[in-house]
Computed example of a mutant assay.
Amino acid sequence: MGEEEEAVIPAGNATIQDRIAAFDMLDRMGDATQAQKTYRLSLVGFKRAEIAAMLGISVASVSQNIYSEKNKGKKKPAPKKIE
């Protein structure tokens, strides 16, 4: 018989109550994008590894999502004209 696999959530500062509150917050976000959910979790203090485990994505994806949400709406500098 095969052993059941359990989700491994990295040890961090988040308590089980923190995780329950986070999942409730994510449920209330409805149609929010993964990037928006990632960014919100980072704002409330979860570490990138914890966010990755909660959302089932890689830590690199968490980092990219946070970066893109932080920079959303910022104007890019106009390209220099070559004469």
Rank of each mutant, 00 (worst) to 15 (best):
P79A: 13
E5M: 14
R19N: 11
L55Q: 07
G12I: 03
I20M: 14
T38N: 08
M54T: 01
M25R: 14
V62P: 05
M1L: 12
R28G: 12
A14P: 04
T33D: 03
A49C: 13
I66V: 11
Y39M: 06
K80V: 00
I57C: 04
I66W: 10
S42W: 13
K37F: 02
V44L: 08
P79V: 02
Q34V: 15
I51E: 01
L26K: 09
P77T: 08
Q64W: 09
K81H: 08
E83W: 13
L41T: 00
Q17Y: 14
A22D: 14
L41K: 08
R48K: 08
Q64E: 15
D24I: 06
G45N: 01
Q17L: 14
Q36S: 10
L55C: 05
R28Q: 11
I20L: 13
L43F: 00
R48T: 05
P77G: 01
A22M: 06
S58C: 02
I16L: 15
E4W: 04
K70M: 05
R48N: 13
Q17C: 07
P10Y: 03
I9C: 07
A78H: 03
D24P: 00
I51T: 05
L43G: 10
K37H: 05
Q64P: 06
P10S: 08
D31K: 06
G30P: 05
S63M: 13
Y39P: 04
I20F: 09
K81F: 11
I66Y: 12
G30F: 05
Q17S: 15
M1W: 10
G73L: 01
K37G: 07
S68P: 03
A32R: 06
V59D: 12
L26F: 05
E3S: 11
S61M: 10
F46N: 00
G30K: 15
E3N: 10
S61D: 12
K47E: 15
N71H: 15
R19Y: 12
S61V: 03
A60L: 10
D24S: 11
T38D: 04
K75W: 00
G2M: 11
A7W: 06
A21K: 14
R19C: 14
I16Q: 15
A60C: 03
T15M: 12
A49F: 05
F46Q: 01
S63K: 12
P77A: 05
G45P: 08
E3Q: 14
K75S: 00
I16C: 07
M29G: 01
L55H: 01
K37R: 12
G56L: 12
A14S: 11
K37D: 05
Y67I: 05
K76C: 02
A78S: 12
K80Q: 07
D24L: 13
A53R: 10
V59N: 06
A7V: 09
M29E: 02
T38K: 10
T33H: 01
M54P: 00
N65G: 10
T15P: 03
I57K: 12
R40Y: 04
E6F: 14
M29R: 08
I51G: 02
A52H: 07
V44H: 07
A32I: 09
K75R: 09
E5Y: 11
N13E: 14
L41A: 06
K47A: 13
N71L: 04
A35T: 00
V62Y: 05
T38L: 13
I16W: 15
E4G: 08
P10E: 04
K74H: 06
A7G: 06
L55Y: 01
A52M: 11
I9D: 10
K70A: 00
V62L: 09
S58A: 04
M54K: 03
M29T: 01
N65F: 10
R19S: 09
